[in-house]
Amino acid sequence: MSNFKHPTTLPLPGGGRLGADETERHLSLMLEGAPLIRLRLERGTELHVHLQEINDRPVGPALWAACYWLFARDPECRRLTWHLTERPGEALLSGLLTPSEYADEYICERTMFWQLPQPWLGESFNGSYPQQMIITDGKRHPRRPMKPRGEVYRRFDARLGAWVSLRTLEIEQDLTRFNRWQNSPRVASFWQEEGSLEQHREYLSNLQREPRVLTLIGCFDDQPFAYFEAYWAKEDRLAPFYDVHNYDRGIHMLVGEEQHRGPHKVASWLSALVHYLFLDDPRTQRVVAEPRADNARMIGHLHNQCFHCEKEFDFPHKRAALMILGRERFFDRCALM
């Protein structure tokens, strides 16, 4: 049985904090202490939500906040059935709600809720970049958008009681810690990128000039703990080894700070990293990884996040396991909160 404790408040990425007065049958939600929305709850095989009063115009943000609160309170809840006397136009257009077969009844599916990019991506989200096919080094692939700078993802993890966020790596800010992490014997045994500050400066500079790779720093409560590389698989050396799609994203992962190791931390940052990549471009249908085939611990963590092992194969430098997670599987089994 889960030892998850229900949140008493939920901070929001853009500022503000949700709080609530909740009973078995009623929910009054507040934003920064001010009344936001009041609901009657009808519990059964599904949760039915009856709107009694709303204190926000436009209505969409208040409905979103209530959906977020209810999904966070119950990680097993898969859908909410809303009863509304007025047609929720904004919520229908965004995909937050879909109409049911009954008048004045609307559905919020957990699998759709977590595919909405806001507020998790903030200002970094620009929608789908126009598709134009180009050829690079003999590989035909879509032209990639300019890489973002700064924070690209932020979400409060109610299980940990901490913010998990991703920002782009900045060489002058992050070089020393990257060098320390790479020279850790634990990390070096898998990455094999030990070296001097200047060697690592060159390594990171080369990646920053490489359109297919985005270098990221993972943070808990804004404290850096990990380094990630997110790459477009179509242009990567991985592409010849499987049936690669135009918008597949691949990941390389490194946890540098010892206090942030452990399965519960991996579940938080790995789901956040995958969530970000699926939100970054809705055309991305798969996230892939290729850890060393003998890295049983990492493969286990990937399995726990619903990746499956497609096969093992031989890179020039290692025997690798091809791990794949599809968009539909990720959101259908979504444990985000």
Results as ranks from 00 to 15, higher is better:
Lys147Met: 01
Asp294Arg: 14
Ala267Pro: 07
Ala293Lys: 06
Asp21Ala: 10
Arg261Lys: 10
Phe241Gln: 08
Phe71Ser: 05
Thr45Leu: 09
Thr45Ala: 14
Arg40Lys: 15
Ala66Pro: 02
Trp114Val: 01
Asn55Ile: 06
Phe228Arg: 04
Pro11Ala: 13
Leu47Glu: 11
Tyr68Ala: 06
Gly15Lys: 01
Pro130Arg: 05
Glu229Leu: 01
Gly218Phe: 12
Met1Trp: 10
Pro35Arg: 14
Asp236Ala: 15
Leu166Ser: 07
Gly300Cys: 00
His50Lys: 10
Leu63Asp: 13
Trp82Asp: 05
Leu93Gly: 04
Met298Cys: 08
Gly15Ala: 02
Phe331Ser: 13
Trp191Pro: 01
Val59Thr: 11
Asn179Met: 07
Glu193Lys: 14
Cys334Asn: 15
Thr81Pro: 01
Glu210Lys: 14
Glu123Tyr: 06
Asp332Gly: 11
Thr85Val: 14
Met146His: 04
Arg87Met: 03
Arg79Ser: 08
Phe330Leu: 02
Ile37Ala: 11
Tyr227Ala: 02
Ser189Val: 07
Ser128Trp: 08
Arg319Trp: 14
Trp191Gly: 01
Glu24Trp: 04
Leu92Ala: 11
Ile37Asn: 08
Ser271Glu: 00
Arg143Pro: 02
Gln305Asp: 04
Glu258Ile: 11
Trp120Arg: 11
Pro7Glu: 12
Arg40Gly: 06
Asp174Arg: 04
Arg297Phe: 00
Trp82Val: 14
Pro224Met: 03
Trp163Asn: 02
Phe228Ala: 03
Ile324Pro: 00
Arg283Met: 05
Arg249Ile: 00
